[in-house]
């Protein structure tokens, strides 16, 4: 474990806490894409299959349980919670995310470290995570103004993978045989997708103005 990866995991955890806080405090999920939340639940379920078979560390196990539980809780909340589900922007959240699932699964069948079910699902979860934010970014552009907590949620979600890129550089430099091309390349693509959001987020922060994404 290195400081970059710990910072990345904590930033990731923070993004989930901010989202849970927004939904719990405002009893509303307006501005949040249910499709992105469903994709994240799928990412964690596909990636953490080894939760019960390979024990890495207490920290690793606890974080996996937290990520799976929180992502499922958010999806449940947005689909079934009587008060919250009313505020879901169903007509704005129209990204065809099934194409993302299909495309990334086919890619995982072709590009994986080993043609085994666990490795294919792991690669699938890495590729899917890289594009999972797209429905959310599209929804933010459609809904015009972005409330603070939602903006912070997306910002921390983008920042966590940027920390992971520093972690991969650090591990590449310090560990003789460290290569993890699938995660590295996919992580760079993932962080790149946030680039325009980071730009507008920085502008709004500098001008102390409301975050607005151009439609």
């Amino acid at each position: 474990m290195n400081i970059f990866r710990l910072a990345g995991d904590m930033t990731h955890l923070l993004s989930i806490i901010v989202l849970l806080l927004k939904i719990y405090a405002t009893k509303s999920c307006s501005g949040i894409s249910l499709k992105t939340q469903e994709l994240y639940a799928l990412v964690f379920l596909a990636r953490y299959l080894d939760l019960f078979t390979d024990f890495i560390s207490v920290y690793n196990t606890i974080m996996k349980v937290v990520f799976i539980a929180s992502s499922l809780a958010i999806v449940w909340c947005m689909r079934l919670h009587p008060l919250v589900k009313r505020s879901y922007d169903k007509e704005l959240d129209t990204f065809r995310h099934y194409f993302l699932i299909g495309g990334t699964f086919v890619l995982a069948l072709v590009l994986n470290e080993k043609f085994t079910l666990q490795e294919i699902l792991w690669a699938f979860s890495i590729y899917l995570e890289a594009v999972a934010i797209l429905p959310q970014l599209v929804l933010l552009q459609r809904s015009g103004n972005v409330d603070n907590l939602t903006g912070q949620y997306v910002f921390f979600l983008g920042a966590y993978r940027a920390f992971y890129i520093l972690n991969w550089i650090y591990r590449y430099l310090t560990e003789p045989r460290f290569t993890r091309w699938i995660a590295c390349v996919s992580g760079i693509v993932q962080t790149g997708i946030y680039a325009d959001f980071f730009y507008y987020y920085f502008i709004s922060w500098k001008n102390n103005s409301k975050l607005k994404l151009p439609a």
Partner: peptide, 10 residues
């Protein structure tokens, strides 16, 4: 075959 990378990251 080639051993896949250890999945020690989240």
């Amino acid at each position: 075959g080639n051993s896949s990378s250890p999945k020690d990251e989240l």
